[in-house]
Computed example of a mutant assay.
Amino acid sequence: MKSTADFQFYLFPITYCLVMVLGLPGNLGALYVYVFKMKEKSSSSAYIISLAVADTVFLCVLPFRVHYHLNGNDWIFGEVACRVMGTIFFSNVYISICFMTCVCVDRYLATVKPHTYLRLRGTCCWAVATAGVWVVCGTTGLAFMLTLPVDTGVGLGSPRRCLESFATGEWENSLAAYSGFSLVFGALVPCAIILVCYPLAARRIARIRTATARAALRTIYAILAITVLCFLPYHLVYLLHLLRRTRVIRDCHAADAIYDARRVTMALVSLNSLLDPVLYYFATGRCKWSLRWLKPKGKRGIYTISDRF
């Protein structure tokens, strides 16, 4: 028997409202600084801009999710809106982790393989990587949106679910394959790269006693923290969820526990859009934001950007 997990009707609205209120200014501020204030763009800048764009779009669909959960998981906006909003919601997880992986590889090369990094710096590799992430994630998301079965409630008085409560046959036909592909290439591979590359880079950087090295270490710690807190729990529980829906796990008590844990980790993974602005501050390794207040009349305050590397 499925757990009702009534706590979700409080957990999701509170978490999503917190993420919206605190995350949207941070992401919009990062876009303003990186797009309009930075004169010279770097590879990391392109990844950060893409990550901020994905987070901003994600934050704009959260009001619909808040209403959905406050309304007892009853979707009132129709099938098309469910497909679009749901695809944006879940695609953000994989877009975010892919661009964080790009930042990870970029910082790893800059610190551990500096000669290789300098050779690649003048090429269009970063543009190809950025475009590649958008094309792959966009194509996968579009296929997901167009082919996904949507339960918008046709029963009398039954809640109209949005991307939830799929039938066993739907899992066997397409959802299991799609979920397995997403777990391997959208979670396992990127997380492995982050968890391997960054500790190696941290060991190298820790030997350098400079402000630049300390800034690079802060970048490492920020990405590792977001990965461990937001992405790993979500994907580990999603793996268990996949095993349950494909009837590998059959125990009813385990099924209830997995359902409850999935609600918690779905709230946790949304926190990445709140925590990403911390990463934006450190990750490029080239910008230092400072607020300098000037005393002369008519001068309120200005952002100054100076080279760190």
Rank of each mutant, 00 (worst) to 15 (best):
F99I: 03
F282I: 07
R214P: 06
F64H: 11
P296Q: 09
R209E: 09
A52E: 01
S45R: 13
V93F: 13
G29M: 11
H241W: 11
P63Y: 11
N27M: 15
K39I: 03
S290A: 10
M85L: 11
F99Y: 15
C125K: 07
P159S: 08
V248E: 00
M38Y: 02
G169D: 07
L268H: 01
E164P: 01
V61Q: 15
L274I: 08
D74K: 07
T246F: 08
V196C: 02
V35N: 12
V84Y: 09
K295S: 12
V248Q: 02
L109Y: 01
G86M: 12
D276M: 10
G78M: 06
G132T: 05
T152H: 05
M20D: 04
P149Q: 11
Y117W: 12
W75R: 10
K113I: 00
A254I: 07
T123W: 03
D256K: 14
P63W: 10
E172A: 13
C191Y: 06
Y303E: 04
A131Y: 01
V33K: 04
P149F: 09
P114V: 04
R207Q: 05
E164N: 07
D55A: 14
T101S: 14
L275Q: 06
L268M: 15
T101R: 07
A206I: 02
P277M: 00
F309Q: 14
L239A: 13
A201T: 05
L146E: 08
H235M: 08
V19W: 01
L175A: 01
S45H: 13
F99H: 14
L183V: 08
E164G: 05
L22H: 08
A254H: 15
F9N: 14
C60S: 12
L274F: 11
M1A: 12
M38A: 06
Y259K: 05
L18G: 10
G132W: 08
I249Y: 04
D74M: 07
P277R: 08
M38L: 09
S50F: 05
C98Y: 03
R286I: 05
K297E: 11
Y34K: 10
R121N: 07
E40A: 02
A54T: 09
R119V: 09
L268A: 12
A46W: 14
